[in-house]
Nucleic acid binder design. Sequence first.
DNA 1: AAATTAAATAGGAATGATTACTATTTACAA
DNA 2: TTGTAAATAGTAATCATTCCTATTTAATTT
Lengths: 122, 122
Amino acid sequence: MRYSYQRELIKDIVRSSKTHPNAEWVFCEAKKKVENISLGTVYRNLKILENTGKIKSIHDDNQVRYDGNIEDHHHLKCVKCGALIDTDIQSNFDRKKIMDDYDFEPNEVKFFILGKCKKHTK
Amino acid sequence: MRYSYQRELIKDIVRSSKTHPNAEWVFCEAKKKVENISLGTVYRNLKILENTGKIKSIHDDNQVRYDGNIEDHHHLKCVKCGALIDTDIQSNFDRKKIMDDYDFEPNEVKFFILGKCKKHTK
DNA sequence: AAATTAAATAGGAATGATTACTATTTACAA
DNA sequence: TTGTAAATAGTAATCATTCCTATTTAATTT
């Protein structure tokens, strides 16, 4: 993999963000450093960074969002403002039951807990 | 809500399908009964049916799929063929811990278990 | 240090899923 | 049966994302 300033920049933007941004947001941030960076470059590199394990992607409704936290973790999602909040909540499912009942070989669980974040509870 | 033959048809198609189809598939099925039905009608009615609790939607990567099973349930997803399989697996999370640790009011959990279905295990 | 080369880019066109628009049709009420 | 507002068909527009291509650039070879 050849060095690319744009790719490093995009990695740093995602790694230092706390908001699980989408490609458009990363693009706007990246423009502050490379004014003529193209959106295609952002998409291409986000995908490369994901495939090489440098960042993670989260499929949120009809948008892909990115996460610089590559630890295994899950998210709380606020139904009011769309905020995604990292958690250390573990999922425990009965592997044997799934294999026996459904003839299915489970590998990974992805979940969201939907609800209201502190800005919207009262 | 005024009666619409198209809406009833779309509801019946989703209700009787086992594959968690997307809008395009529902559209093709509906055309067998109403040859000039429009795709917009399918999208609009799928949304109405969802909002009135007649069917459910599943956000699967970047496509919306529909489910005629409105019971609270979750899915196994085969990473090889994309099949979604209904399960009765329950999610149990610690409501109090989430409220205390994250100042978040949880309401609902959505999860997928990713793995391989019987066609692809050997 | 210059020449070479293949990977990466910028910019823009294309795609695919979905939504919006509008003239016409239709359910249903007066 | 006539009036109406809701629903439709058909089509254009939108939005996120991917694809295409001429140009630029990192890294290798002379």
